[in-house]
């Protein structure tokens, strides 16, 4: 196993649900409740020093995974000083699609979290401005959810084509 995975397991213990490595790229899956602490530690610790959150997105595993872990929120972290990367994922239940906001850890998370809310309907608690970023306020539903009707149209003007 990779060095970063070992560090995470040492520090976070049972909060690490699973981990894997592919071609030198390391991924850890962390429990939702421990996420914010883990992210802050990943940013601040001298050995990890992830000062750059490159990407934050989500995946809908509707129909392929149990409903308690239907969604997965994914963080892609990069350290400018160490030049290393880590992918951090956390499962999110369909019944409670709400996670802690990472805006207090990286300001860059602001718009990414709004996009995930817009597209997947996952709420980020503690976000300073939790509203849609790409779609309009009148839009109903979250279009990247796999159960959003692919034929549904919600135009602001003109016919529903």
């Amino acid at each position: 196993m990779g060095r970063l995975i070992d560090l995470c397991k040492q520090k976070l213990g049972g909060a690490v649900i699973s981990a894997h490595e592919q071609h030198g790229d390391e991924t850890v899956v962390i429990h939702k409740d421990a996420m914010l602490t883990a992210l802050r530690w990943l940013r601040d610790d001298e050995a990890t020093k992830f000062d750059f959150m490159m990407d934050l997105t989500a995946v809908d595993y509707f129909g392929t995974r149990p409903r308690e872990e239907r969604f997965e929120v994914v963080y892609h972290l990069f350290s400018l000083s160490h030049n290393h990367r880590l992918r951090v994922k956390m499962p999110v239940a369909e019944s409670d699609p709400a996670v802690e906001s990472a805006v207090t850890v990286w300001r860059a998370a602001d718009w990414f979290e709004r996009e995930v809310w817009d597209m997947y309907g996952i709420v980020f608690k503690g976000h300073p401005n939790m509203k849609r970023i790409l779609l309009y306020e009148e839009f109903e539903g979250h279009p990247l959810r796999k159960d959003y009707n692919i034929r549904k149209r919600q135009p602001l003007i003109g016919p529903e084509n």
Binding site: L134, L135, Y136, R153, Q154, P155, L156, I157, G158
Partner: peptide, 8 residues
């Protein structure tokens, strides 16, 4: 669709 009312 978000842009359409602006174009209008």
């Amino acid at each position: 669709h978000k842009q359409a009312p602006i174009l209008n």
